Amino acid sequence: MSASAIGGSANGSVDGGGPAQAGGPARADARRNRERILHAARELVREPGELKLNAVAKACGIGQGTLYRHFPTREGLLAEVYRREVDDLVTAAPSLLAAHPPLTALAAWFDRVAAYARVKRDVFAAVEAATWRDLAAHSLGPIGEAVELLLAAGRSAGTIRADAEAGDVIVLIGWLTRLNDAELDARGPRLLSILIDGLRASRP
């Protein structure tokens, strides 16, 4: 799923600039600012209390006007943080399969799922119910496709059990979002290791 452009200006520019944004250094600078904003928001949403846009701007070292041109609302910024996390998770699946055997690729992908679970938990706790329901509905398909890609490769290789289904895996990894940071650090790797063992094809 591609990350949506949230917070475009009235003239339709994603980065909120005028004609100077058409290309060149100004455009590149706008992209860098957008990335810095998303990175800072991803880190700050984990802290106690409500995420403040002025705190994000301060963490990025940019003016509040620049931040508002990219993301006029806190809700829009957090939604984009989550969408970016989903994008990264989904695109990791084919990359891992290109570099590793299917079962190893699935285990490495599960390591990324733990980081995704933290972001999902924190973002969903910080946005309105209607927003997180919409985000969840639109992310389920792409994540399911990534899981199925990994499972199908393992089934073809004979290393993942033939009856493994993407929906079952999504239900099981969904429990990670219910854990706090300490529990994720202590139990997350073990739980995912157990899941990998359960998906492993039985030896004849």
Score class of each variant (00 low, 15 high):
residue 86 V to E: 04
residue 135 L to R: 00
residue 78 L to W: 01
residue 182 A to V: 13
residue 13 S to D: 03
residue 20 A to P: 00
residue 59 A to G: 05
residue 180 N to F: 09
residue 90 V to A: 01
residue 39 H to N: 14
residue 192 L to M: 09
residue 133 R to V: 10
residue 44 L to P: 10
residue 186 A to M: 11
residue 59 A to V: 04
residue 148 E to D: 03
residue 46 R to N: 08
residue 117 A to C: 05
residue 106 L to R: 12
residue 156 S to E: 15
residue 137 A to W: 11
residue 80 E to S: 09
residue 186 A to I: 05
residue 2 S to G: 11
residue 152 A to P: 04
residue 43 E to K: 13
residue 170 I to N: 10
residue 32 R to P: 00
residue 111 D to F: 09
residue 151 L to R: 04
residue 113 V to D: 06
residue 189 P to G: 10
residue 82 Y to V: 00
residue 158 G to L: 00
residue 155 R to A: 08
residue 98 A to V: 03
residue 97 L to Y: 06
residue 197 D to T: 05
residue 52 K to H: 11
residue 15 D to G: 15
residue 22 A to Q: 07
residue 105 A to T: 01
residue 111 D to E: 14
residue 81 V to E: 07
residue 107 A to S: 14
residue 190 R to S: 15
residue 43 E to R: 15
residue 157 A to C: 11
residue 78 L to E: 06
residue 192 L to I: 01
residue 202 S to Y: 03
residue 78 L to Q: 14
residue 195 L to W: 00
residue 33 N to R: 08
residue 197 D to V: 02
residue 163 D to M: 08
residue 172 L to I: 15
residue 189 P to C: 05
residue 44 L to W: 06
residue 203 R to L: 14
residue 24 G to P: 11
residue 93 A to D: 09
residue 183 E to H: 02
residue 183 E to Q: 15
residue 189 P to N: 12
residue 60 C to K: 04
residue 46 R to E: 14
residue 64 Q to S: 08
residue 108 A to E: 01
residue 60 C to D: 04
residue 147 V to D: 10
residue 29 D to S: 00
residue 189 P to H: 06
residue 53 L to W: 12
residue 87 D to H: 08
residue 142 P to M: 06
residue 2 S to E: 15
residue 198 G to P: 03
residue 123 V to M: 03
residue 37 I to M: 02
residue 2 S to Q: 13
residue 179 L to W: 06
residue 11 N to A: 03
residue 61 G to Y: 08
residue 99 A to Q: 14
residue 85 E to I: 00
residue 70 H to R: 06
residue 173 I to Y: 06
residue 18 G to V: 01
residue 164 A to T: 03
residue 81 V to A: 11
residue 67 L to V: 01
residue 138 H to D: 14
residue 67 L to Q: 08
residue 96 L to A: 08
residue 66 T to K: 13
residue 77 L to G: 02
residue 196 I to K: 09
residue 105 A to E: 05
